[in-house]
Design a binder for these strands. Structure first.
Lengths: 224, 224
DNA sequence: ACCTGAACACCGTTCAAGT
DNA sequence: ACCTGAACACCGTTCAAGT
């Protein structure tokens, strides 16, 4: 009958849409994760975003788990680290802030990156960069690996807190902070009560800066 | 009809099994998580372990998410912290090791505890303990909160690495370490190659000890 | 009051069939 | 070669019904 009653339903790209590809799938998955959270990142959901049948995805990614790995890789690939200058403090700061900056570009994907094995080949670039900094600062290889892992632990813990704390805590949510402070005060625990106003809010920038200072001090001390 | 025949009403405990309760459910859930991992912790699975229908669980916990919260609480409740002695280094070490020890009692539940909001009321005990240590060491409340968060970030990152690294890396898995080392060497990244033998293995005890030393140094430096 | 069966609206994934 | 529909074996959760 008529030739255009339905949107073109076939293996052909609809409406000049480019064909399915691993990259398009990963991009859509990241967008979905960013919009709804990783726990709601579903094969069927990704497929719908691409206007495609869920099963079609399996031509390009092996499984949901492989897709999560691909996202991890993509996030890590966005990490650009400067060449070391030779000044330990400056270099550590630069690495830490670069790490945080690229993490916060995909906040809701961060738990994925931090929770999965960070030793995947994709993470070797950052590893090399940090080891280079530590080498320049005089760390022999074995101590450098220890220092690397301690630094990573701090960064992972910091970023995990920041991204999973949600938008409350940012200082903007005055009402939430107030409610929280009365909760803390109600606990009756003396030091918690005394620190309640500070515990009730969290300025992530300042918090990270404090932590990085501490990390620098620790590495300076561990250098010898 | 309506006699005093109301007494022990139950779903008829099979074979002297005690009746369902929130505690029994949480215990079974932790055991299941420990045996199969949190991602396979399923309402139906927990119910099966208890010889009960899945829907019965909802009489005692509101949802799967509430059950995960209950597990988090139970793990945190197992944390026993010593009273502060006044010596910052000794006290920080004591807290860190107590934290790790109780985490490793339920290794596969740890990601849960670390990933969920650590500010739940259940976490106030540990918070109080750390603040007490920092107060004794001379930190005014605001700085103490910064120091607390930095310490927590390090602990969270360290424990997350340890529990999700799996049993490989422990040094026992010589074959895995060998395979891993050749992988690292193949990367061609100069510092990674130079450090490959150390990157290929991870002695969690030694690693944690190094990190705690660094943390102590950082806190000593931040004290003034 | 507590437990259950059936049912709903989802999942990831396999497979044979289409083009 | 790539995409699809139907199907399988699961999920969490609701609800009305049993005791």
């Amino acid at each position: 009958m008529d030739t255009e009653t339905d949107p073109p339903r076939r293996g052909r790209p609809r409406r000049g849409q480019e064909p399915l590809s691993r990259k398009r799938i990963v991009d859509a998955a990241m967008a979905l994760a960013e919009a709804e959270g990783v726990e709601r990142l579903t094969m069927r959901g990704v497929a719908k975003r691409l206007g495609v049948d869920a099963m079609s995805l399996y031509n390009h990614v092996a499984s949901r788990d492989a897709l999560l790995d691909a996202i991890t890789e993509a996030v890590l690939a966005g990490l650009r680290l400067p060449a070391p200058s030779g000044d330990l403090a400056a270099d550590v700061r630069a690495v830490a802030h670069a790490f945080r900056r690229s993490a916060l570009r995909h906040p809701r994907c961060v738990p994925l990156v931090l929770t999965r094995q960070l030793d995947a080949p994709a993470a070797l670039g950052p590893t090399e960069a940090v080891l280079a900094v530590l080498d320049r600062a005089g760390f022999p290889p074995e101590r450098a690996v220890h220092a690397l892992r301690t630094s990573l632990a701090f960064l992972v813990g910091s970023l995990l807190r920041e991204v999973s704390a949600g938008p409350a805590f940012s200082g903007a949510d005055v009402e939430g902070a107030g409610r929280r402070e009365t909760e803390l005060t109600a606990s009756g625990l003396p030091h918690v009560v005394a620190a309640a106003p500070h515990l009730a809010v969290c300025d992530h920038d300042a918090e990270f800066a404090f932590g990085v200072d501490a990390l620098v001090a620790a590495l300076e001390a561990a250098r010898r």
